[in-house]
Design a protein around this nucleic acid. Structure first.
Lengths: 143, 143
DNA sequence: CAGGAGTATGTTACATTATAACATTACACA
DNA sequence: TGTGTAATGTTATAATGTAACATACTCCTG
């Protein structure tokens, strides 16, 4: 047996990886009850904190929720795109964007340490599902 | 008398504008008790929601807190820099950065609607106050 | 192996942030 | 004036997160 903490982190990560959707800490807690019937919030938050500090998971600030890291390399920072329709979260490498952001704030003497870059919108799959991208949409196709 | 709601929003905005520091909704509530002794959380959240939807204030997602908008024009989006040392929050125009972010996520077919770009670090004033940017810093000035 | 320092984990309780749901008031207009 | 609508007030509670302490475990040291 490795340390129990590592087991907990592995279980949390497995839950987050089931779907590319952000889960609140309490949703994770519910999912953990199968394997850990008596788990309490601090254990979940400790595991999430360890995972995020190791870059194996990310907190989606604008959703107050968490996702598994999807990037193999986990470069300095990433962009998270969040579909407002289906909740799908995707991670994008942010190298140049992070540099651009750092450059903008450096104009006032600010030195960057940690970036939060999140985009809300509609994912490709939901865009494809939409009846039409124009008009009010109540009348079906505009044809 | 204008509508009471506008008065509330004006009061909230005045509180946020006192300092360029993010205030939690409950800090705002405390500050409002002078003018509105019996105020309750929903009134504060409604005022903050109206202000943010009009672009007169911003929610700092990574701090769960709110700041007054500092930009006269309030372009489509902005970058917020947050000093970890003093809490100072500064707003930066983000035009090109927003385009770059949208471009990155568009590579997977994602259409952007709303951007959250926040940078944590150290502001110019705190950088200037720091004894030295090297070593552990316990020994005072390196001179 | 006993003792004990130090760390990790479990547990309780609570703090903080946010909103649902309904009551009340204000206002426009027939 | 009555009445429908929207805005605001109020109560209660949901959702998120953490402090503080208890317990257990690990690994030394003698």
């Amino acid at each position: 047996m490795t340390t129990p903490g590592e087991q907990m982190q592995a279980d949390v990560l497995a839950i987050l990886r089931r779907r590319n959707v952000a889960l609140s800490a309490y949703k994770v807690l519910e999912a953990l009850r199968d394997a850990h019937p008596k788990i309490a919030p601090p254990a979940v938050y400790r595991a999430l904190s360890s995972l995020t500090s190791k870059g194996q998971a990310h907190r989606v600030e604008s959703l107050k929720a968490y996702v598994a890291c999807q990037s193999k390399v986990h470069a300095s920072a990433s962009i998270l795109s969040i579909c407002e329709s289906c909740g799908y979260v995707e991670e994008h490498l942010a190298g140049e964007v992070v540099e651009a952001v750092s450059h903008v704030v450096a104009e006032t003497g600010f030195s960057s340490q940690h970036h939060v870059i999140e985009v809300h919108g509609i994912c490709a799959a939901c865009n494809a599902r939409m009846p039409a991208p124009e008009g009010v949409g109540a009348g079906g196709s505009p044809q």
